[in-house]
Amino acid sequence: MNILLAAALKVVGVLVFVMANAFMLIWLERKVSGYIQRRYGPLRVGGPAGIYQSAADILKLLAKEDFMPGGADRWLWLLAPVVSMVPAVLVYLVLPIGRTFTLQDLGVGLVFFSSVTSFTLLAIFMAGWGSNNKYSLLGAMRAGAQLFSYEVPLILSTIGVVLIAGSLRLQTIVAAQTQHGWFFFEQIVGFIVFFIASIAELNRTPFDLAEGESEIIAGYHTEYSGMRWAMFMLAEYSNLFTSSALGVALFFGGWHGPWLPGWVWFLLKTYIVVFVGMWIRWTLPRIRIDQLLDLGWKFLLPVSVANILGTALVLMVR
């Protein structure tokens, strides 16, 4: 009974956090893009610096008609947003938020993380195929090629860290950095590959081909509106947060830091990485699909493999 209660609490807690965090991030993205472009961003809805904007958006999206395009594949279309939420929520399970605070400290945390996030592709493909829209289908196909080919360097780039820390458990990896120093310094190549690949996994500029606005309108979620579209957005921003959090855990010492409690450090570092992601998004143009695949297979993959070999050699010699 107690276990069930604890599990229910965790689920509710994660859901609440996902919501609140996504609102926060959407607001932050608008503010960052605004100030980068010499605008104010949202202001008019109220609250300090227009922070109620996201709440107003949700109200608007709730009130919107739930419109299904004619000829859509009913179940695929209906389920896709829900499916996209599942991996977004599940990955919170293993995040090492504080020194002693992980929802479920799995021994294979890293593997769990990367295998669960690959489910996002399923949701995108369901949405793209189910919408009966050519732009959606193009977006889904692009996302398929992209997520598939960046999954590989993403995982390989983390192996260097795993080798040094000697564990797949995220808490252990973070703990290893408390003595050893941040892995960012030793694994800078790994971090760069990880960062590029995770931006690509998140479908953000310069790799936002799956929803490249000027080319295929909104990609796989062209036909979605109202709450279903909001779920895609929630999942997207939640993924932005979790993959930045993973980067922090692997390369920036996770919750490790002086004075402040661990979870504050963790959130702080994560938001800084998120900010860098936003900064990149509002600076760079979009890459083309063949260049994207070239970059993934011909550059990131060899580099990450070389990184693993180099790390292993150094470890062996030591």
Binding site: V32, G34, Y35, I36, Q37, R38, R39, Y40, W279
Partner: peptide, 12 residues
């Protein structure tokens, strides 16, 4: 360039 612009007053 973008980070520099970010710390200028908005022109809106």
């Amino acid at each position: 360039i973008t980070i520099r612009e970010m710390f200028h007053r908005p022109v809106t």
